[in-house]
């Protein structure tokens, strides 16, 4: 299935490649592009990136493994990165994270049964002024309290549209 999805990205892939002085440099943007479409980095995605960049698949895989943002397995439709570094933890992040885990019923690295949420305990997302904070999909949410976490999750859970794409 991902092969069909990837085919639809060929024009965009060509546009990306044209910006770089070397094809290999397009590895990260092509992986982002494909992951956004397919949901995670499948072997087909690796092969597709390898085809465009003309570097061996094994090197593409090495890159995928190195970076935390590439999903090595299916993620939830709303991937949550909860900051667990110093400032967020100093301001009670731990307690709120535990609350979030109960709320969506998963632990670090998990995906909820309905496929809606996945959770990653992240290192500093550089938004310490709004600590404790988390990123849901693309968006940053700060000054978190248990109540605020409930609201954010409830809004997403209720919205059928948002459930399809974060």
């Amino acid at each position: 299935m991902s092969e069909f999805l990837l085919k639809s990205l060929d024009a965009e892939a060509e546009r990306i490649l044209s910006k770089y002085d070397q094809k290999k440099a397009a590895t990260l943007p092509l992986l982002h592009l494909a992951q956004d479409k397919v949901g995670y980095v499948t072997p087909e995605v690796e092969a597709w990136v390898s085809k465009w960049t003309e570097i061996p698949v094994v090197h593409v895989r090495e890159v995928v493994m190195f970076y935390s943002m590439y999903h090595k397995k299916p993620a939830g439709r709303h991937h949550i990165r909860f900051c667990t570094t110093t400032t967020c933890a100093l301001l009670g992040g731990d307690k709120i994270l535990n609350h979030l885990k109960k709320k969506i019923g998963i632990d670090n690295g998990g995906v909820s049964a309905d496929g809606k949420f996945s959770l990653e305990e992240a290192e500093c997302l550089c938004a310490c002024e709004m600590a404790p904070m988390m990123q849901v999909g693309d968006e940053y949410h700060g000054d978190l309290t248990e109540k605020k976490v409930d609201e954010i999750i409830d809004v997403i859970s209720r919205s059928p549209q948002a459930a399809e794409k974060s």
Partner: peptide, 27 residues
């Protein structure tokens, strides 16, 4: 001017790791 997104690795802020990452490799 090209805007290039990283992919989640603190070490890529080190300037030579950044270059390797920008070239499409591990940081």
């Amino acid at each position: 001017l090209v805007v290039h997104r990283g992919a989640g690795a603190y070490i890529c802020g080190e300037e030579t790791a950044l270059l390797n990452s920008l070239e499409g490799g591990k940081g």
